[in-house]
Design a protein around this nucleic acid. Sequence first.
DNA 1: TCTTAAATATGATTTTTATCATATTTTTGT
DNA 2: ACAAAAATATGATAAAAATCATATTTAAGA
Lengths: 143, 143
Amino acid sequence: MLSKSSKYAIKAVLFLALNSNDKKKVMVKDISEPINVPQAYIAKLLQELSRQNIISSSRGFKGGFYLSDNNRKQSIMSIVNVIDGEKNFNSCMLSLNECDEDKPCPLHKSLYPFKSSIIRNLESISIKDLALEVELGNAFLPL
Amino acid sequence: MLSKSSKYAIKAVLFLALNSNDKKKVMVKDISEPINVPQAYIAKLLQELSRQNIISSSRGFKGGFYLSDNNRKQSIMSIVNVIDGEKNFNSCMLSLNECDEDKPCPLHKSLYPFKSSIIRNLESISIKDLALEVELGNAFLPL
DNA sequence: TCTTAAATATGATTTTTATCATATTTTTGT
DNA sequence: ACAAAAATATGATAAAAATCATATTTAAGA
């Protein structure tokens, strides 16, 4: 479904949504620990997210990662797309290269509607939305 | 979602459902080609499925793999469980070790219902059901 | 009973994913 | 300018998943 890397990335971005802004930057070692992901590993993911403008960063003394208001508008799916690549999700449940409504694979009819809903959800939920859920205490981001 | 191995396995079992029975066994090389999976690889998967009694086999001359009537009653999920292990699916979307209705991860509320439906579907659809769909021309199993 | 054709067991190799390590560049404060 | 502290770039290593290779066991037919 989601790769480990994508999950790590989502957790990190969510952490930044909750703990950073233009004026308050957070450095990798202060992200990796609370979300429980190896520092060097999350560093690489954050660098990639930053290069793709999903998150923001500044180097040097007093530098770190943070989310701008624009960053927060991005969807969760955009994180997944950067880390796992675009069409990891859309592919057929049985990996047939031809699978659509016209010529569906055996699992298509029963499973595609649900998978499709998951995709649309990930596309429609913004980083800000998700952070809000945590702030309201409706969801949790532990360990 | 499903590993490549699980997808291969489902395709192979479905092929057996459509092309074998107690009296008509099929050997690996005649399975691997039509489903387009490397022979040595699918052989290993079929052996595991056979050991776990998801499919049937007999060795030696005139031997091969086939599905008994009982085999056909098994669910698609049982194939996945044998190949990918039991709790690959049930795990949290963000891999938090605590994630349930009481203390849901940020993605739980919006995604779990759909994921749950997929699981229940895979559990309720039998091999026989799925093969029937292909026989009726409602679904396709190409390449 | 012997030969042949099949699955089975076992393990080696390759590829992908995850993880670790480090030298370089950039920014800020002195 | 300089020193320190941060991200960045790059690549090495480790672990897991996928793929390949082969010797062994089993069953059928002559």
